[in-house]
């Protein structure tokens, strides 16, 4: 295929010099198969070495290159230029975050909110530190939260969320999904602690299901679904209708728990 020239309209901002962000246009030579991230590299190598963005793995795993591409928050490494346009593409930093420089948003506010939802298994300390057995979890119990574990914390959902466009306190789709991921985990006992965070002013009820987070998520995590399931649990718990299951027990050792017939535990590799 012949080489195409595509105009990249890139948001530039240097807080030490510029009073506010402005758009700079670069003409990029595009080949078949080039991603938006490749286009940015081409600009840096051939046109403007001062352009700044953040990336790491360039294959949709690390979640560093979340950007507003043609008005949609998505990963630059996951987006083919020619799937979007043959002529013009706009590239901006993720909205709803402060801009550090050019295309680099400050994701710290998101990570602080993530830390605030207790994103870890909450069990009595003795049970967690006692290494004599594993927690028993069935495949069905795993499926109840597995989808929400695929989140890579890229912040695309935060950039798409309409509530976050004005509300500084709202936790946002990513932290609330993390919250639901642990709430739905059968090994966890922390519902009461997290319910405090989730029903507070910045919690789950600031979500009104505009559906944007689910639409833009580059990993199919579906934060919208997680938040609605979280609300359902909060409301049922308030009305005393929630199905109060005990967290899953610990296996007492090899052979305990539900094993398939004719199945034995493999021999231990570590001497007792």
């Amino acid at each position: 295929m012949a080489e195409l020239k595509v105009n990249f309209h890139v948001t530039r901002y240097n807080p030490e010099k510029d009073p506010k962000p402005y758009i700079q246009t670069y003409s990029v030579a595009v080949n078949d198969g080039m991603t938006v991230l490749d286009g940015l590299h081409w600009i840096k190598e051939n046109l403007d070495p001062t352009l700044v963005w953040r990336y790491s793995c360039r294959m949709g795993i690390c979640g560093s290159c979340g950007m507003l591409i043609n008005g949609t928050p998505t990963l630059a490494c996951n987006t083919q230029i020619l799937h979007l346009s043959q002529t013009d593409i706009t590239v901006g930093p993720l909205p709803n975050f402060e801009i550090i420089r050019d295309l680099v948003p400050d994701l710290l506010s998101m990570f602080e909110k993530h830390a605030a939802v207790h994103p870890n298994i909450i069990r009595p300390e003795a049970e967690l530190t006692d290494r004599t057995g594993e927690f028993y979890q069935s495949p069905e119990e795993l499926e109840a939260y597995l989808q929400f574990t695929y989140c890579i914390k890229c912040g695309c959902c935060m950039g798409a969320c309409p509530t976050l466009a004005t509300d500084v306190r709202y936790l946002g789709p990513m932290p609330l999904t993390a919250l639901q991921r642990y709430n739905a985990d059968s090994r966890d006992e922390g519902f009461k602690v997290r319910a405090q965070v989730a029903s507070a002013d910045g919690g789950a009820f600031r979500c009104h299901y505009a559906g944007e987070c689910s639409r833009v998520c580059p990993k199919g995590v579906d934060p919208g679904k997680a938040i609605q399931l979280l609300k359902r649990k909060l409301v049922l718990d308030y009305l005393h209708l929630a199905n109060r299951k005990k967290p899953c027990p610990k296996l007492e050792g090899p052979g305990h728990g539900k094993l398939l017939p004719n199945m034995t535990a493999p021999p231990r590799t570590i001497p007792e």
Partner: peptide, 13 residues
């Protein structure tokens, strides 16, 4: 529990 769930539940009802 914080009051958010209470008010929102009655808002729905």
């Amino acid at each position: 529990m914080s009051n958010g769930t209470k008010y929102w539940t009655w808002h729905m009802a």
